[in-house]
Design a binder for these strands. Structure first.
Length: 822
RNA sequence: GGGGCAGUGGUCUAGCCUGGUUAUGACAACUCCCUUACACGGAGUAGGUCAGCGGUUCAACUCCGCUCUGCCCCA
């Protein structure tokens, strides 16, 4: 026995000690690098570029772990994996953060200086995120700084600008001066999906107006008295009997004494206040809509910094809030306020900085999307969604889209709008696609105006794009820039496929933005769906079910959890904890439980690593117990595969763990220990070697099928015992493990029997290795008789019940009994 | 107001599509055991009638309807 020296020597698995060493090996050996000439079919993953403004919380770590499992499974299934790492570095959040950190306002420092401040923050956080990627063992093509892509680098922004130029020339983009959501703090127009809602309450004033024609009073409820000078129309519901006679008449506003028409419009709710509603330029999005429908001229009284304009001289320069108070006070003082009460209200706020959104008309560029909705609905039905119910999230959004996409922003840290305006005729001049343009600081690459031929010079556009203009091209960038180097040949080859990229992994909250816009642009640019399938995950929330970002604190930072329990444990936890698409309530205790399994797995491997590896099958004679466990293995390998195929990692995680810990470790290993060691020399060499063969066969395949979920411990084991990396192995087929699955029907009885004997000995307060004189057991277990006798130290196994009249009769389950005599 | 998802022992979770023996597993708890891979281990015990109500059915956790609760999205 002492001849058997384990190849794995560490007493326990210590992730802190092993993981980084393994990760370094993967890097040196470049085993995950993309190799387009491998001859394998390419599988492309549109990695979501993590936004580099804040380090990951557990949600990010777990989300990306699962995306890595997609890559690892597909790699083992025979695909060449295009799986970039990347960082998203454009947009508002980083600007807001830079302003806070450096205590400046973006508009008060030179643009170039501000950009550098943003970059400094982005670099710091970017490094922190990449560090977590490493300790979680991600298999991106590369995690080297130069080989990961960043959305703010020149070649990425060149791509964004090139698509703008192309679509502009095709007439898909137009400029319009329509009212839109405007954040007065960020000083930019924002799109509908950049709006959040905050619940709170506001004061509802019942204010007395006068009808010009009849002289009667008209009471109107409003929460925004400061907009009285901006009223465009006063409406009542067409079904409202009370006010029919007012149609076509005129109302005179209090204080300002403007004359405003009264009309019927379905938007007025009869039950709300008095049923009369004032429509202003602009109180909310419905005002915008009504103005548009009724073709009224808006009188905009709020400027871009959220102050009252000189169109209302008495209050010019006041902030909206201040004006509201002053006007409300004056209305009250002069007796115009009939009643006032607080009412609950959902306020639209900027999703980035939480400032109240106003509605202002600004000239902005728009990308057409409304006319593409029917085709996008088709795509939504055709594209595969994992899990399927997530399809509805996009369909719901498609049903609410009603206006084209405003794509320009009055911000700095983003891709510049590549347009110069002619000083003479103001015509927008666009450069040729293919280069990166910065109109705010550079001269245009042309001398004279394309329209009027004037060479008086140009004014560069100061705006940038909505960051989704960049993000919605990520799948194109992915297939065009492996290792962040442009490869047109590869792109031309891949773009022939019926979709642009294989899979879009995403969290459910950005379906309406990232997935939606990417699908739109795929349609516009290449007339095909951007993806073959979309993989959508839920969130990681805290133990109360609330979002992590708010309440997490510092205790459950992913780096702390990984340090404590290991990257594999965090990955496994994320895979096993919830079915695909559901939220995970983070629970550290359960994570700790997982780390115990990882160690158990290592120890099983360490145990059997002491036995020689048998490769020549002619040396062995497989015993029924061997055929049984190989059959069980083949079954669980197929079951795991069914989960991997739909990227639902809970299925392999749970089934493989159960097989490993229960079936394999507790039953098979115990069953064949005696044979593997050949205790008492009671076995033939061929039988002993069969045990060795089977132990290794199970371990080897198990390591392979577990590798996508727990890449560190599996590779440690595989390299330690089988001298190569597990990560380039092929995912096994059940048939390759055993030709014909056998003995599967004995599994429940076998487990029941073992349990019964353990329980029996325990009830007699005997150690488990106490010899048993005689046992009679169910017939279907006879084939395993010899191994069972060895496992339980049984001296005689009786096959005929009659031959053993004396002994305790124990029922092991509903139908079967055993007789036992110590 | 509309839509989506969910409500299973202390905690988390499987099963529900394709109704049918004592409802899966894990974590935690409790008891016993350091048996030569592992105490980050092993054996065992206790704990749920599947949110509520009604319906379909010989039979419902599983199908249908309503109600309640939670989360998310939209208005």
């Amino acid at each position: 026995m002492s001849d058997f020296v384990p190849k794995l020597t560490e007493k326990t698995y210590d992730p802190q000690k092993q993981d980084l060493m393994l990760f370094k090996k993967w890097q040196e050996e470049k085993i995950f690098a993309f190799n387009k000439s491998s001859g394998k079919p390419i599988f492309s993953i549109d990695t979501p570029p993590p936004y580099a403004n804040a380090p990951w919380h557990m949600g990010g770590a777990i989300h990306y772990s699962q995306i890595d499992m997609i890559a690892r499974y597909k790699r083992m299934a025979g695909y060449e994996i295009l799986f970039p790492m990347c960082l998203d570095r454009n947009g508002l959040p980083i600007e807001v953060q830079a302003e806070k950190k450096f205590k400046i306002s973006m508009h008060d420092v030179p643009r170039e200086d501000f950009l550098n401040m943003c970059r400094q923050l982005l670099d710091e956080v970017g490094d922190q995120i990449l560090d977590i990627c490493k300790i979680l063992g991600f298999s991106n093509n590369s995690l080297e700084w130069d080989e990961i892509y960043k959305t703010d680098e020149e070649q990425y922004r060149t791509l964004t600008q090139s698509t703008f130029i192309k679509l502009f020339k095709e007439g898909q983009i137009y400029e319009d001066d329509r009212p839109n959501n405007y954040c007065t703090r960020c000083k930019t127009t924002i799109a509908d999906n950049e709006i959040d809602y905050k619940s709170g309450s506001h004061t509802l004033y019942d204010i007395r107006f006068k009808v010009k024609e009849t002289g009667e009073d008209l009471i109107i409820s409003t929460s925004r008295p400061e907009l009285i000078p901006a009223i465009g129309v006063v409406i009542f519901n067409p079904k409202d009997e009370r006010y029919q006679y007012l149609g076509g008449k005129t109302v005179i506003t209090p204080l300002f004494e403007d004359e405003v028409p009264i009309m019927a419009h379905h938007y007025a709710q009869m039950e709300y206040g008095t049923g009369i509603m004032m429509v202003c330029a602009y109180g909310d999005s419905s005002d915008v809509q009504i103005f548009r429908e009724l073709k009224l001229n808006p009188k905009t009284i709020i400027d871009t910094s959220g102050k009252i304009t000189d169109k209302v001289p008495e209050y010019a320069g006041l902030k909206v809030k201040e004006a509201k108070k002053e006007i409300a006070d004056k209305l009250e003082a002069e007796g115009y306020v009939v009643d006032k009460a607080d009412a609950p209200h959902n306020f639209p706020i900027c999703s980035r900085c939480k400032t109240l959104v106003e509605f202002l008309a600004m000239p902005e560029y728009y990308l057409k999307q409304v006319e593409y909705l029917p085709k996008l609905h088709e795509y939504a039905q055709e594209m595969e969604f994992f899990p399927p119910f997530m399809r509805q999230v996009w369909v719901d959004w498609l049903n609410t889209v009603s206006i084209d996409w405003p794509i320009s922003r009055r911000r700095y840290y983003g891709t510049e709008v590549p347009v110069w305006y002619c000083k003479s005729c103001n015509h927008p001049n666009l450069p040729e696609p293919g280069n990166y343009y910065q109109p705010w600081k550079n001269d245009p690459p042309f001398e004279s105006c394309q329209k009027c031929d004037s060479s008086d010079g140009f004014i560069g556009d100061l705006r940038t794009f909505d960051t989704w203009m960049d993000s919605s091209l990520s799948e194109i960038y992915t297939i065009m820039h492996p290792h962040n180097k442009k490869d047109e040949t590869l792109f031309n080859e891949l773009i022939q496929r019926p979709y642009i990229c294989d899979v879009r992994p995403s969290a459910k909250d950005i379906v309406r933005t990232w997935l939606h816009y990417t699908m739109l642009r795929g349609l516009q640019l290449y007339n095909k769906p951007a993806f073959n399938c979309a993989w959508i995950s839920g969130f990681v929330v805290d133990s109360k079910g609330e979002k992590l970002s708010k309440s997490a604190g510092s205790t459950i930072k992913p780096e702390n959890m990984i340090e404590k329990y290991g990257g594999d444990a965090v990955r496994f936890y994320g895979a096993a904890e919830a079915s695909h698409g559901s939220d995970i309530r983070f629970n550290q205790q359960r994570l700790q439980g997982i780390s115990k399994f990882i160690n158990k797995f290592y120890n099983i491997a360490k145990f059997l690593s002491r036995f020689p590896i048998i490769t020549n099958k002619s040396e062995i004679s497989l015993q029924p117990a061997d055929e049984w466990i190989l059959s069980e293995l083949a079954r669980v390998v197929e079951e795991a595969k069914s989960g991997y195929e739909i990227f639902d990692f809970q299925i392999p995680a749970k089934s493989l763990r159960n097989f490993t810990w229960e079936t394999f470790a507790s039953h098979y290993v115990e069953l064949v220990k005696g044979r593997a060691y050949n205790r008492n020399n009671s076995y033939e060499e061929r039988e002993q070697k069969a045990a060795w063969y089977t132990l290794h066969k199970v371990m080897k395949e198990l390591t392979i099928v577990f590798a996508p979920i727990i890449p560190f411990v599996t590779d440690l084991i595989y390299r330690g015992i089988y001298d190569k990396t597990v990560h380039l192995e092929k995912y096994p087929e059940g048939k390759e493990i055993i030709d014909k699955q056998q003995y599967l029907e004995i599994t429940p009885t076998l487990l029941d029997l073992n349990s019964a004997i353990w329980k029996y000995k325990k009830s007699k307060q005997l150690p488990l290795n106490t010899p048993i004189e005689q046992v009679y057991m169910p017939e279907i277990l006879f084939p395993l008789a010899k191994d069972l006798a060895s496992m339980h130290a049984i001296e005689t196994l009786v096959k005929e019940k009659d031959e053993m009249p004396e002994g305790d009769i124990i029922s092991i389950n509903e139908t079967e009994n055993i007789v036992i005599r110590i």
